Simulated assay, not measured.
Amino acid sequence: MEMPVNTFKSALAKGDPMWGCWAGFATGYAAEIVASTGFDWLLIDGEHAPNTVPTILAQLQAVAPYASSPVVRSVNQDAALIKQLLDVGVQTLMVPMVESGEQAAALVRAMRYPPHGIRGVGGGLVRATRWDGVDDYLTKAHEALCLIVQIESPKGVEQAEAIAATEGVDAVFIGPADLSVGMGHPGNPGHPDVQQAIEKVIKTVQAAGKPVGILAPLEDDARRYQALGCQFIAVGIDISLLRQGALATVARYKERSTHQSSSTY
C-alpha cells in the first residue's frame, strides 16, 4: 500500500491561496458538514475545543472522503501526545506557542523516527501505517508529514527568524488573539503595534522560504493578510458561523441588540 498523500502539504508547495475553517465542535458529524462545503483546509482544534485523541480520530475519519485537508492543532508541545496524534493518522500538525528555534527543533524530533528523532514505533497497532499496510512506512513517514508552528507571543516574534529557519518546520501560523494579549492589547489584534509585529513575522518567514498562515474571521483582515503574503488563512470558525446564523435568524422575528462579529474569534 502506498503512503496516503498529504494534500495540504502538496497544496502548500504550489503556492496558491488556501482558505480554511476552524472546527471547534469536537464531533465527526459537525466536521464532516464543514468539510463538505468547499474549504481548502479544516483545522481540528485540540487546544481550545473539548477534543481528545479519540474525538480527533473520529473527525479525521469523517472528513477523509472530502477535498478539505485536515490540520490538527495539539493542545501543547508534549512529545508523547504528538506521537499519539501521528499514530492515529494526523499528517499535518499545528503546534501552539512556539517561542524559539530550540522548541521548533524539538517538535521536529518528536515527529521523526530515530536516528533523526524520538517518535516511538507503533507498527501494526496504528492507523498511520494502515496497520502495517504501508510499505516502508518507517523510512518514508516524514515525507508525508507537515509541521506548522505557531508564533503568537512577543518572544515568538523576536525569535521568528530562528523558528522559521529550523529544518523540518514546514510553515508558520500567526495567532493574532494571543499575540494581542501578550502585547498588552487584549481583544485588539488590529492595534498598530500588533499589526506591525504580524507584518514583521510574515516578512521574516517569507525570507526563510516558508509559507505563512493566519486566522482572520473578518474578510477585510483576511484580504489584507493575503496581500501581505499569507498563503493559508482561516476565514471561518464553525461555532461562530452557527451562532451568527442563529442570531440573524432570531433577529428577523424578535427585537434584540445588534451583535458585532469578533475580529479574533
Score class of each variant (00 low, 15 high):
37 T>L: 15
38 G>R: 12
39 F>I: 08
40 D>H: 06
40 D>M: 04
41 W>E: 09
42 L>D: 14
43 L>N: 02
43 L>V: 03
45 D>I: 05
45 D>F: 05
47 E>V: 11
48 H>G: 05
49 A>Q: 03
54 P>A: 12
54 P>Q: 15
54 P>W: 12
55 T>S: 13
55 T>G: 08
56 I>A: 08
58 A>D: 13
58 A>Y: 04
58 A>P: 01
59 Q>S: 13
64 A>R: 05
65 P>R: 05
66 Y>Q: 11
66 Y>D: 03
67 A>H: 07
70 P>I: 07
72 V>W: 03
73 R>V: 02
74 S>D: 04
74 S>M: 02
76 N>Y: 02
78 D>E: 10
79 A>L: 13
79 A>T: 07
79 A>S: 14
81 L>V: 12
82 I>F: 00
82 I>G: 01
83 K>D: 08
85 L>T: 08
87 D>S: 09
88 V>A: 03
88 V>S: 00
89 G>Q: 06
94 M>K: 06
95 V>W: 04
96 P>R: 09
96 P>V: 13
97 M>Y: 08
98 V>N: 06
98 V>R: 13
99 E>F: 01
99 E>T: 15
101 G>I: 11
102 E>S: 14
103 Q>K: 03
105 A>I: 08
105 A>E: 09
105 A>W: 12
106 A>K: 13
106 A>P: 15
106 A>H: 06
107 L>N: 09
107 L>G: 01
109 R>E: 04
109 R>M: 06
110 A>I: 11
110 A>H: 07
114 P>T: 15
115 P>S: 04
116 H>N: 13
118 I>K: 01
120 G>H: 07
121 V>I: 05
121 V>W: 10
125 L>I: 15
127 R>P: 02
131 W>R: 07
131 W>F: 14
132 D>G: 10
134 V>W: 04
135 D>E: 15
136 D>Y: 12
138 L>W: 07
139 T>L: 06
140 K>I: 11
141 A>M: 05
142 H>I: 03
143 E>L: 12
146 C>R: 14
146 C>H: 15
148 I>K: 03
150 Q>F: 03
150 Q>M: 10
150 Q>V: 03
